[in-house]
Amino acid sequence: MKALATRRRSRFAPTALLLLALLITGGLYAALAPSTATATASVATASDVELGMKLFQANCATCHGMNAQGSEGVPSLIGVGAAAVDFQVSTGRMPMQANGPQAPAKTPQFNEEQTAQLAAYVASLGAGPAIPTDEEIDGSQGDVANGMALFRTNCAMCHNAVGAGGALSGGKYAPALWDTSARNIYQAMLTGPQSMPVFNDNVLTAEEKRDVISYVEAQRSGSPGGADLGAIGPVSEGLWVWVVGMGLLLGCAVWIGAKSS
């Protein structure tokens, strides 16, 4: 207590107070910000749709068709909703660069505004899942234990127990979820991009999806036992026991066996 009292009188006190004030302001902003963001996201103006259509015709229509009706091997986008577009475009999966087993995530080609315009255009073609609100994807409000139960039944077989990713057949894969944003995780569940099944609100309710996000986000603080070795299980553990364990011990054995000079 005494120490605290001394510190209050110190010359750093004003700086500390200022920092505290900034922190509170920042915290308040963070708490209030979601509502404003939701407001901008949900309101798509007619000009957005117009601009989105232009972007679509320039960048997407070659494969998906002038009216997004799709063609042989290319899905129709009528009715896929804004969520699907936002997921595919904001993760860089669309537009596709080359044909392959699956479209990989890469640096997005469009900025947030253009993505929103594209989403608005596609959403205007037919009713589909909308972009989730910040409330829906806020992992801190989820139940991590329930998220674990849902994740391991519905997700872990492809994405691995903690979301490290895994292989599918024929060169396809379930990507790692370490860097995926909560919004993209939610949208992926909702729309079932590429090989992924669709987890509509009857399979996983909105709250359950948030629980899953909460679990995935909890995995990002690593493992209590130390380096997680990629979190891919016994194969990497076996590799490391040979490299580190046998490596170090063979080194020691050579030292012990060597004649000293």
Binding site: A156, M157, C158, G165, G233, V235, E237, G238, L239, V241
Partner: peptide, 13 residues
């Protein structure tokens, strides 16, 4: 449930 990367320890691999 099952997780991808379902393997035994290295000596049973």
């Amino acid at each position: 449930p099952v997780s991808s990367g379902a393997q035994p320890d290295w000596y049973m691999l």
